[in-house]
Design a protein around this nucleic acid. Structure first.
Lengths: 170, 170
DNA sequence: GTAGCAGGTTGCAACTCGCAACCCAGCCCG
DNA sequence: CGGGCTGGGTTGCGAGTTGCAACCTGCTAC
């Protein structure tokens, strides 16, 4: 069956996944962050099937995450680039990478280090911050319905909330 | 065809996606963050097919992201809970949610607000930080091969690096 | 003028997802 | 103590995607 789309989900996480949560889309974005630009470079780096790559590039373009510039520079015809929307995925990419570094590869086995360009030190682990910059853990945050909340059918972050989060007890 | 697995990719992002990058896995994790615990609650909230849910729960359990506790409390037989590894996905979840808030829903339309439990203020937008806590943009960081770097076939973050990132020109 | 390459498109086969129906083990109730 | 209800799945089927490889196209180079 067709993959279910998440458009009418309440939480923005679902919306995000609907646009870039695809298996390949995020890796394409990662490669664009890393400097890849041409169709062939992406295809070679990722090892993705070309028809799939075509489809994903089209979809990402439609969503405004990347753009296809007809800039030809000798050995490439088009250059795919991140838009501002795409570049704004940096925290997501870094968070995913750090999680993989920590929990999949294990400490000391990072294949790629992201460092501060100024002093060459690794960047900090991503963390949720309060307005006064305190680092917040799961126990320090609450979630509540925002301005765009809609109690539409098919979605309701209800359930027996643990200590950590709740969604307006009434 | 079978979805390609990313196990032998260099970048940890691919590894992360291999474990939790599935369409449903991240939403399951999100719901667990939000307090859902039982099989039925997850199935109802997400609207996911039960066989798929079974499969994803099994896979997430195998990867150690969640655990299935036989804790029965009257109306549920089992309780699925996040492990420490799973709880460590908080930055990823928040980053995804914030991106969706900003770029899909638009400002002022957030369906869910995550706030500091202490003062009720919204948490800060996720951002990459230097060791001295400066907020770093794409232009402020570099990436270089880490201790686990392997120039294995099928992966090479090469390509004509832009100003932003590079991968050790030799 | 033809070889080569970037950038796709097309067809086929294998694999997965979604749906709905079925199963099973505990309880709750009479 | 037998039947129904509910939680938590499993099974089968058909439609939809993915992966692979082959083919096409518009340029440039030789």
């Amino acid at each position: 069956m067709a993959r279910k789309r998440f458009e009418n989900f309440c939480c923005s996480t679902a919306q995000t996944l609907d646009q870039i949560g695809d298996w390949w889309s995020l890796l394409i974005v990662r490669d664009l962050f890393a400097g890849a630009r041409s169709f062939t470079a992406l295809a070679d780096n990722l090892g993705v099937a070309r028809n799939i790559l075509t489809d994903r590039l089209k979809r990402l373009t439609e969503h405004g995450v990347i753009e296809k510039a007809p800039a030809r520079s000798a050995d490439e015809r088009f250059a795919y680039r991140l838009t501002e929307k795409g570049r704004d995925l940096l925290p997501v990419m870094i968070a995913l990478m750090q999680w993989g570094d920590k929990w999949v590869r294990g400490p000391g086995c990072e294949p790629l280090l992201v460092v501060d360009a100024r002093d060459g030190k690794p960047v900090r682990p991503m963390s949720v911050r309060a307005w006064d910059d305190r680092i917040l853990g799961l126990a320090d945050i609450r979630s509540l319905p925002g301005p765009g909340a809609q109690r539409a059918a098919g979605e309701a972050v209800s359930s027996p909330s643990p200590v950590t989060k709740d969604t307006a007890p009434a």
